[in-house]
Amino acid sequence: MRKKYFLGFCSLVLIVLLAGRTCAAEPLFVTAPHKMMVDVGLQHAEVLRASPSSAALGIDCGMADMCGIDPCTCGSPDEWGHCACNGTKKTPVSYKVMVDDPKVASVTVSGAKLTVKGLSAGQTNVTVTAHLQHYTDAVQTITVTVNSPFYLFWILPVAAVAAVLLLWMFKRKKKGKR
């Protein structure tokens, strides 16, 4: 009989501790361009912006996780109910990128800076995923178009004109020596 009351009391305490705390995550929003253009061999950088950009998370003190949330029994919870008796730390959004065709472009992300380098002419999609604990991940697709380098369009005509001038000068010098 005592065991039943004890289990009931423990269940009640657990319900009170977790009251008002849910496992549902809030949405995270990320803004990035929907289209980017870059020439082969060149790079283009954009700054990714997420809202919120960071969160003050409680520093884990080793309590057991329940439904992804530590029940704070020490009386110092962060805004998500995690134990913060060791204080809080500002945790920024982390980004992950995936390129559909890595032969067309290489993409890196450092902090919130997205850098695209054109590898060969073509088009590919880049999927950017923003992650912040306690928020729903935000996913955005960017269409990257890699163009042939502009200098290829004028270097060939200039080289042809230079070759004709050199031949003309060479023939003119030969005529002058006779």
Rank of each mutant, 00 (worst) to 15 (best):
K177T: 10
V47F: 03
H34Y: 10
M37Y: 05
V93L: 07
T124Y: 05
P52W: 05
T145P: 01
W168T: 13
C74I: 13
K173L: 03
A159C: 09
L132K: 07
W80G: 10
A163M: 12
V40N: 00
V99I: 13
T73M: 11
G62I: 01
Q43S: 15
C10M: 13
F153L: 13
I155C: 06
A25G: 01
V13S: 05
F150Y: 12
G41S: 07
K117W: 08
S110P: 00
T129D: 01
Q140I: 11
D70A: 03
V126K: 12
L152V: 00
D101F: 01
D70E: 13
A56G: 10
H131T: 12
V93I: 09
M169K: 11
V161M: 13
H82K: 10
K4S: 12
G20P: 11
H44F: 11
M36K: 03
S120C: 08
A84T: 15
P77Y: 14
E46Y: 03
K173G: 06
W80R: 11
G75S: 11
T129V: 04
L119T: 02
C74R: 14
P33H: 02
H34F: 12
T91F: 04
C72A: 03
L114W: 04
I15W: 02
P33Q: 07
N125W: 02
G111L: 04
P52N: 04
G68I: 02
D137G: 07
H131D: 11
I15R: 15
V47T: 14
T73N: 09
I142F: 10
V16A: 15
V126N: 01
S148L: 02
V104M: 05
A138K: 07
K174H: 08
V38I: 07
T31R: 15
K117I: 09
D101I: 00
M98H: 04
V146Q: 02
V107C: 09
K174T: 05
L165H: 04
F9E: 06
R178W: 01
V40G: 08
G62M: 11
K103G: 14
D65W: 11
N125M: 10
Q43M: 08
S148F: 08
L42I: 03
L166H: 12
H44M: 04
A56F: 12
M63L: 10
P149N: 14
T127E: 13
S54E: 09
S110G: 11
P77I: 01
W80T: 06
P77M: 13
M36V: 03
A121G: 09
M169H: 06
F6Y: 13
Q140N: 09
A121D: 07
S76G: 05
M169I: 12
G176R: 14
E46P: 05
A130W: 01
K177C: 08
G87Q: 10
V107G: 06
T22M: 04
V107Y: 03
P149L: 05
K113M: 14
A19E: 05
S11Q: 06
I59W: 07
A19K: 14
